[in-house]
Design a protein around this nucleic acid. Structure first.
Lengths: 125, 125
DNA sequence: ATTTTTAGTTAGCAAAGGTAATGAGTTATG
DNA sequence: CATAACTCATTACCTTTGCTAACTAAAAAT
Protein backbone atom coordinates (compact mmCIF):
# COMPACT_ATOMS: atom_id res chain seq x y z
CA UNK A 1 0.00 0.00 0.00
CA UNK A 2 2.65 2.45 1.01
CA UNK A 3 4.80 1.40 -1.91
CA UNK A 4 1.88 1.88 -4.27
CA UNK A 5 1.43 5.42 -2.96
CA UNK A 6 5.10 6.10 -3.34
CA UNK A 7 4.87 5.07 -6.97
CA UNK A 8 1.76 7.14 -7.45
CA UNK A 9 3.60 10.18 -6.21
CA UNK A 10 6.14 9.60 -8.97
CA UNK A 11 3.45 10.07 -11.58
CA UNK A 12 4.41 13.62 -12.27
CA UNK A 13 4.09 15.97 -15.17
CA UNK A 14 1.54 14.68 -17.65
CA UNK A 15 -1.34 14.67 -15.18
CA UNK A 16 -2.57 11.17 -15.94
CA UNK A 17 -3.56 8.70 -13.28
CA UNK A 18 -2.19 5.19 -13.02
CA UNK A 19 -5.44 3.73 -14.29
CA UNK A 20 -5.38 5.90 -17.37
CA UNK A 21 -1.76 5.16 -18.04
CA UNK A 22 -2.41 1.46 -17.65
CA UNK A 23 -5.12 1.61 -20.30
CA UNK A 24 -2.83 3.38 -22.72
CA UNK A 25 -0.06 0.87 -22.06
CA UNK A 26 -2.41 -2.07 -22.59
CA UNK A 27 -3.59 -0.70 -25.91
CA UNK A 28 -0.03 -0.08 -26.93
CA UNK A 29 1.05 -3.57 -26.04
CA UNK A 30 -1.94 -5.52 -27.33
CA UNK A 31 -3.24 -3.23 -30.06
CA UNK A 32 -6.76 -1.87 -30.51
CA UNK A 33 -9.51 -3.64 -28.58
CA UNK A 34 -13.07 -3.15 -27.44
CA UNK A 35 -14.14 -1.50 -24.23
CA UNK A 36 -15.21 -4.83 -22.81
CA UNK A 37 -11.93 -6.54 -23.56
CA UNK A 38 -10.12 -3.63 -22.02
CA UNK A 39 -12.25 -3.85 -18.87
CA UNK A 40 -11.58 -7.56 -18.55
CA UNK A 41 -7.88 -7.07 -19.06
CA UNK A 42 -7.68 -4.31 -16.46
CA UNK A 43 -9.88 -6.34 -14.09
CA UNK A 44 -12.48 -3.64 -13.84
CA UNK A 45 -16.24 -3.56 -14.44
CA UNK A 46 -17.40 -2.33 -17.86
CA UNK A 47 -18.97 0.90 -16.58
CA UNK A 48 -15.72 1.90 -14.93
CA UNK A 49 -13.87 1.39 -18.18
CA UNK A 50 -16.46 3.36 -20.11
CA UNK A 51 -15.74 6.36 -17.97
CA UNK A 52 -11.98 6.03 -17.96
CA UNK A 53 -12.03 5.69 -21.73
CA UNK A 54 -14.34 8.70 -22.07
CA UNK A 55 -11.82 10.82 -20.18
CA UNK A 56 -8.97 9.64 -22.37
CA UNK A 57 -10.97 10.29 -25.55
CA UNK A 58 -11.79 13.78 -24.27
CA UNK A 59 -8.08 14.32 -23.74
CA UNK A 60 -7.41 13.24 -27.32
CA UNK A 61 -5.29 10.27 -26.29
CA UNK A 62 -7.67 7.59 -27.54
CA UNK A 63 -10.07 7.40 -30.43
CA UNK A 64 -13.22 5.36 -30.86
CA UNK A 65 -14.03 3.47 -34.02
CA UNK A 66 -17.30 1.69 -34.62
CA UNK A 67 -17.02 -1.93 -35.59
CA UNK A 68 -19.11 -2.45 -38.77
CA UNK A 69 -19.39 -6.19 -38.10
CA UNK A 70 -20.91 -5.83 -34.64
CA UNK A 71 -22.29 -2.39 -34.10
CA UNK A 72 -22.65 -2.86 -30.37
CA UNK A 73 -18.90 -2.79 -29.99
CA UNK A 74 -16.51 0.13 -30.02
CA UNK A 75 -12.90 -0.32 -30.93
CA UNK A 76 -10.46 1.81 -28.98
CA UNK A 77 -7.02 2.70 -30.19
CA UNK A 78 -4.25 5.11 -29.32
CA UNK A 79 -4.04 8.41 -31.14
CA UNK A 80 -0.70 9.83 -32.13
CA UNK A 81 -0.80 12.05 -29.05
CA UNK A 82 -1.53 9.01 -26.89
CA UNK A 83 1.38 7.07 -28.30
CA UNK A 84 3.73 9.98 -27.81
CA UNK A 85 2.62 10.61 -24.26
CA UNK A 86 3.08 6.96 -23.45
CA UNK A 87 6.58 7.01 -24.90
CA UNK A 88 7.59 10.09 -22.93
CA UNK A 89 6.15 8.66 -19.75
CA UNK A 90 8.00 5.46 -20.30
CA UNK A 91 11.21 7.41 -20.72
CA UNK A 92 10.63 9.33 -17.52
CA UNK A 93 9.77 6.17 -15.65
CA UNK A 94 12.85 4.45 -16.99
CA UNK A 95 14.95 7.33 -15.77
CA UNK A 96 13.47 7.09 -12.30
CA UNK A 97 13.88 3.33 -12.29
CA UNK A 98 17.44 3.54 -13.49
CA UNK A 99 18.15 5.89 -10.64
CA UNK A 100 16.58 3.46 -8.17
CA UNK A 101 18.40 0.54 -9.69
CA UNK A 102 21.68 2.27 -9.16
CA UNK A 103 20.94 2.18 -5.43
CA UNK A 104 20.97 -1.59 -5.29
CA UNK A 105 23.40 -4.31 -6.22
CA UNK A 106 23.36 -6.39 -9.38
CA UNK A 107 22.37 -9.39 -7.29
CA UNK A 108 19.38 -7.57 -5.91
CA UNK A 109 18.41 -6.42 -9.38
CA UNK A 110 18.35 -10.01 -10.52
CA UNK A 111 16.21 -11.02 -7.57
CA UNK A 112 13.68 -8.32 -8.47
CA UNK A 113 13.61 -9.37 -12.10
CA UNK A 114 12.90 -12.98 -11.13
CA UNK A 115 10.25 -11.91 -8.66
CA UNK A 116 8.51 -9.86 -11.34
CA UNK A 117 8.20 -12.91 -13.56
CA UNK A 118 6.70 -14.97 -10.76
CA UNK A 119 4.23 -12.27 -9.77
CA UNK A 120 3.16 -11.82 -13.36
CA UNK A 121 2.35 -15.49 -13.49
CA UNK A 122 0.40 -15.35 -10.23
CA UNK A 123 -1.55 -12.33 -11.45
CA UNK A 124 -2.65 -14.42 -14.38
CA UNK A 125 -1.23 -12.40 -17.21
CA UNK B 1 -1.59 -2.26 -11.75
CA UNK B 2 -3.38 -5.42 -12.71
CA UNK B 3 -1.80 -7.26 -9.81
CA UNK B 4 -2.90 -4.54 -7.43
CA UNK B 5 -6.47 -4.91 -8.71
CA UNK B 6 -6.27 -8.64 -8.33
CA UNK B 7 -5.29 -8.19 -4.71
CA UNK B 8 -8.02 -5.68 -4.19
CA UNK B 9 -10.54 -8.12 -5.55
CA UNK B 10 -9.44 -10.48 -2.82
CA UNK B 11 -10.54 -8.02 -0.22
CA UNK B 12 -13.79 -9.76 0.38
CA UNK B 13 -16.20 -10.04 3.24
CA UNK B 14 -15.59 -7.32 5.79
CA UNK B 15 -16.26 -4.45 3.39
CA UNK B 16 -13.17 -2.42 4.21
CA UNK B 17 -11.00 -0.81 1.59
CA UNK B 18 -7.27 -1.28 1.35
CA UNK B 19 -6.65 2.21 2.68
CA UNK B 20 -8.75 1.56 5.73
CA UNK B 21 -7.16 -1.81 6.33
CA UNK B 22 -3.74 -0.28 5.98
CA UNK B 23 -4.52 2.26 8.69
CA UNK B 24 -5.67 -0.46 11.04
CA UNK B 25 -2.58 -2.52 10.31
CA UNK B 26 -0.29 0.45 10.91
CA UNK B 27 -1.89 1.19 14.24
CA UNK B 28 -1.63 -2.45 15.17
CA UNK B 29 2.01 -2.63 14.26
CA UNK B 30 3.18 0.70 15.64
CA UNK B 31 0.67 1.35 18.39
CA UNK B 32 -1.50 4.42 18.94
CA UNK B 33 -0.44 7.56 17.11
CA UNK B 34 -1.75 10.93 16.06
CA UNK B 35 -3.60 11.69 12.87
CA UNK B 36 -0.62 13.54 11.47
CA UNK B 37 1.81 10.73 12.16
CA UNK B 38 -0.59 8.32 10.57
CA UNK B 39 -0.89 10.52 7.48
CA UNK B 40 2.88 10.76 7.15
CA UNK B 41 3.26 7.04 7.57
CA UNK B 42 0.63 6.26 4.95
CA UNK B 43 2.08 8.92 2.65
CA UNK B 44 -1.14 10.82 2.45
CA UNK B 45 -2.09 14.43 3.14
CA UNK B 46 -3.58 15.20 6.56
CA UNK B 47 -7.09 15.98 5.30
CA UNK B 48 -7.30 12.60 3.60
CA UNK B 49 -6.37 10.87 6.80
CA UNK B 50 -8.89 12.87 8.77
CA UNK B 51 -11.67 11.50 6.62
CA UNK B 52 -10.45 7.93 6.51
CA UNK B 53 -10.11 7.96 10.28
CA UNK B 54 -13.57 9.47 10.68
CA UNK B 55 -15.05 6.58 8.73
CA UNK B 56 -13.22 4.03 10.83
CA UNK B 57 -14.31 5.72 14.05
CA UNK B 58 -17.90 5.74 12.79
CA UNK B 59 -17.55 2.01 12.14
CA UNK B 60 -16.33 1.53 15.70
CA UNK B 61 -12.93 0.21 14.64
CA UNK B 62 -10.90 3.13 15.97
CA UNK B 63 -11.28 5.44 18.90
CA UNK B 64 -10.06 8.98 19.44
CA UNK B 65 -8.41 10.12 22.61
CA UNK B 66 -7.49 13.71 23.30
CA UNK B 67 -3.92 14.33 24.34
CA UNK B 68 -3.93 16.39 27.56
CA UNK B 69 -0.38 17.60 26.96
CA UNK B 70 -1.07 19.05 23.52
CA UNK B 71 -4.73 19.54 23.00
CA UNK B 72 -4.36 20.09 19.28
CA UNK B 73 -3.50 16.46 18.81
CA UNK B 74 -5.74 13.44 18.72
CA UNK B 75 -4.45 10.02 19.55
CA UNK B 76 -5.93 7.17 17.57
CA UNK B 77 -5.98 3.58 18.63
CA UNK B 78 -7.67 0.36 17.67
CA UNK B 79 -10.82 -0.69 19.46
CA UNK B 80 -11.41 -4.30 20.35
CA UNK B 81 -13.59 -4.65 17.26
CA UNK B 82 -10.83 -3.17 15.13
CA UNK B 83 -8.24 -5.56 16.48
CA UNK B 84 -10.50 -8.53 15.93
CA UNK B 85 -11.40 -7.52 12.40
CA UNK B 86 -7.75 -7.07 11.60
CA UNK B 87 -6.95 -10.50 12.96
CA UNK B 88 -9.67 -12.20 10.96
CA UNK B 89 -8.65 -10.38 7.81
CA UNK B 90 -5.09 -11.40 8.36
CA UNK B 91 -6.17 -15.00 8.73
CA UNK B 92 -8.16 -14.86 5.52
CA UNK B 93 -5.31 -13.21 3.69
CA UNK B 94 -2.88 -15.78 4.99
CA UNK B 95 -5.13 -18.53 3.73
CA UNK B 96 -5.24 -17.01 0.29
CA UNK B 97 -1.52 -16.44 0.29
CA UNK B 98 -0.81 -19.96 1.46
CA UNK B 99 -2.91 -21.22 -1.40
CA UNK B 100 -0.94 -19.07 -3.83
CA UNK B 101 2.34 -20.11 -2.32
CA UNK B 102 1.48 -23.72 -2.88
CA UNK B 103 1.38 -22.97 -6.58
CA UNK B 104 5.02 -22.06 -6.73
CA UNK B 105 8.27 -23.75 -5.82
CA UNK B 106 10.29 -23.20 -2.67
CA UNK B 107 12.94 -21.52 -4.76
CA UNK B 108 10.44 -19.05 -6.12
CA UNK B 109 9.09 -18.40 -2.65
CA UNK B 110 12.55 -17.47 -1.51
CA UNK B 111 13.00 -15.15 -4.47
CA UNK B 112 9.77 -13.36 -3.55
CA UNK B 113 10.81 -13.05 0.08
CA UNK B 114 14.12 -11.49 -0.90
CA UNK B 115 12.42 -9.15 -3.35
CA UNK B 116 10.01 -7.98 -0.65
CA UNK B 117 12.91 -6.95 1.56
CA UNK B 118 14.53 -4.97 -1.24
CA UNK B 119 11.30 -3.22 -2.20
CA UNK B 120 10.62 -2.33 1.39
CA UNK B 121 13.97 -0.64 1.51
CA UNK B 122 13.33 1.25 -1.73
CA UNK B 123 9.94 2.40 -0.48
CA UNK B 124 11.73 3.93 2.47
CA UNK B 125 10.09 2.03 5.26
C1' DA C 1 0.86 40.73 24.50
C1' DT C 2 1.23 39.77 20.05
C1' DT C 3 2.80 37.17 16.24
C1' DT C 4 3.96 32.93 14.14
C1' DT C 5 3.75 28.12 13.71
C1' DT C 6 1.53 23.72 14.09
C1' DA C 7 -2.37 20.02 14.24
C1' DG C 8 -6.45 18.98 12.79
C1' DT C 9 -10.46 19.98 10.40
C1' DT C 10 -13.94 21.60 6.86
C1' DA C 11 -15.27 22.57 2.13
C1' DG C 12 -15.04 21.58 -2.47
C1' DC C 13 -12.99 19.23 -6.74
C1' DA C 14 -11.96 15.14 -9.63
C1' DA C 15 -10.96 10.22 -10.38
C1' DA C 16 -11.89 5.43 -9.64
C1' DG C 17 -14.32 1.77 -8.10
C1' DG C 18 -18.85 -0.46 -7.62
C1' DT C 19 -24.19 -1.92 -8.73
C1' DA C 20 -28.64 -1.42 -11.07
C1' DA C 21 -31.15 -0.24 -14.89
C1' DT C 22 -31.46 0.98 -20.16
C1' DG C 23 -30.85 0.90 -25.13
C1' DA C 24 -29.34 -1.00 -29.14
C1' DG C 25 -27.67 -4.88 -31.74
C1' DT C 26 -27.11 -9.86 -32.32
C1' DT C 27 -28.33 -14.52 -31.81
C1' DA C 28 -31.34 -18.24 -30.84
C1' DT C 29 -35.85 -20.27 -30.94
C1' DG C 30 -40.72 -21.32 -31.63
C1' DC D 1 -40.38 -14.73 -39.84
C1' DA D 2 -41.33 -12.94 -35.25
C1' DT D 3 -40.20 -12.96 -30.85
C1' DA D 4 -37.39 -14.10 -26.97
C1' DA D 5 -33.00 -14.12 -24.91
C1' DC D 6 -28.62 -12.57 -24.58
C1' DT D 7 -24.59 -9.32 -25.06
C1' DC D 8 -22.02 -4.76 -25.29
C1' DA D 9 -21.82 -0.44 -23.97
C1' DT D 10 -23.75 3.15 -21.62
C1' DT D 11 -26.17 6.14 -18.11
C1' DA D 12 -27.40 7.23 -13.42
C1' DC D 13 -26.13 7.12 -8.82
C1' DC D 14 -23.38 6.03 -4.64
C1' DT D 15 -18.99 5.52 -1.92
C1' DT D 16 -14.15 6.04 -1.06
C1' DT D 17 -9.87 8.28 -1.87
C1' DG D 18 -6.80 11.48 -3.27
C1' DC D 19 -5.83 16.59 -3.61
C1' DT D 20 -5.64 21.97 -2.44
C1' DA D 21 -7.23 26.02 -0.04
C1' DA D 22 -9.06 28.10 3.78
C1' DC D 23 -10.18 28.04 8.73
C1' DT D 24 -9.96 27.12 13.96
C1' DA D 25 -7.71 26.22 18.04
C1' DA D 26 -3.69 25.43 20.59
C1' DA D 27 1.21 25.99 21.38
C1' DA D 28 5.54 28.38 20.78
C1' DA D 29 8.25 32.31 19.78
C1' DT D 30 9.13 37.13 19.83
Amino acid sequence: MRLARRLRAERGDHGLTLSQLSVLATLHRHGAMTSGELAAHERVQPPSMTRTVANLVADGLLERKDNPEDRRQVLLRLTKAGTELLASDRARREAWLTCRMSEITADERQTLARAAVILDRLAGS
